[in-house]
Design a protein around this nucleic acid. Sequence first.
DNA 1: ACACAATACATCCGCGCCGAGGTATATCGG
DNA 2: CCGATATACCTCGGCGCGGATGTATTGTGT
Lengths: 177, 177
Amino acid sequence: MIGGVLELAILGFLAEQPLHGYDLKRRVAQLTGHVRPIADGTLYPAIKRLERAGWLTRRTEPGSRAAPRQMLVLTEQGRAELRRRLTEPEEMEISDENRWFTVLAFLRHLDDPAARDAVLRRRLAFLETPSSFFYDGNRPVRAEELDDPYRRGLLTIARATSRAELAWLRETLGGTD
Amino acid sequence: MIGGVLELAILGFLAEQPLHGYDLKRRVAQLTGHVRPIADGTLYPAIKRLERAGWLTRRTEPGSRAAPRQMLVLTEQGRAELRRRLTEPEEMEISDENRWFTVLAFLRHLDDPAARDAVLRRRLAFLETPSSFFYDGNRPVRAEELDDPYRRGLLTIARATSRAELAWLRETLGGTD
DNA sequence: ACACAATACATCCGCGCCGAGGTATATCGG
DNA sequence: CCGATATACCTCGGCGCGGATGTATTGTGT
């Protein structure tokens, strides 16, 4: 999460079905792999922002096990906003892995296959631009050269992730490519 | 970066050698894989915070190619603070991959091998607790079951990363374990 | 009957981050 | 000589996020 993607996640989950805040909270936490449980003080103001923007409405319902719930329903404008954000993700939503994963989790909500592919291709382009974690002056330092085992591990793990994602992207985009 | 780890990165880089802000900026950006170039409005206030806390001091030097530089030098308290933050990382520094990578990048600055291993073991414990991205009620949904190719990709990539890191952690901790 | 946990929602404060804008110097090509 | 670019530093406003705190209801264990 972090940094605007929370709103994307809310719009995305609500596009699948109406949910109440507490349920949303659980799903968002799960989406990040429980890496970052979302705080109440983050979620509820975010819901308010989306409501004020006209992207969702509330329906009060009796709670199943406790206090009454505010069922959140995505409006047609909300659905349009979701499509807009998925079609034209900002640069950081492409480069930052956490944010990118959120985009990927809801990409299916774009109906146009060409639009979906375009987003994947942006990520592919980003991953294909050479970049390193550590430099000796301007020369990138390879994992094997590092005498620090922790930084070597860092590069090893990052490389494994990159390889897996590149393979998946090429396979998914592949076909007639 | 994001969320306090910026300070850890500054302390970590300065523990290796004195640097000026501009240089620091480049290194921090590289550390994140250029995922998140750090903004001036983020870096310079952070430097000020660390200076006010007594963790670094400045030495003005003539710039090599431009305006005079503020060389930043870590103080003894700064070095102690770095060790403290590495010895007792907060929960989110263990769970959030971005933050964890920052910890890992500077872990060598802990002299005590047992302390370093303890940090690795916390990460290992986190990765070994089962968690999923998507749930059907309370039952975790496996990648193979998902009809959404993007979420399937998500799980595939996450799993590859997890496998690589677990292998590395076990190998590194291994030996006589 | 009572304590406790889980459900469910909400607000406030502080703080770190970003983007925009500003200042200044040195180098290099035209 | 002039503009562009890279170097180098700084401030301010806005805003999202996290943590603390509060309120209320329902189910569970004892």
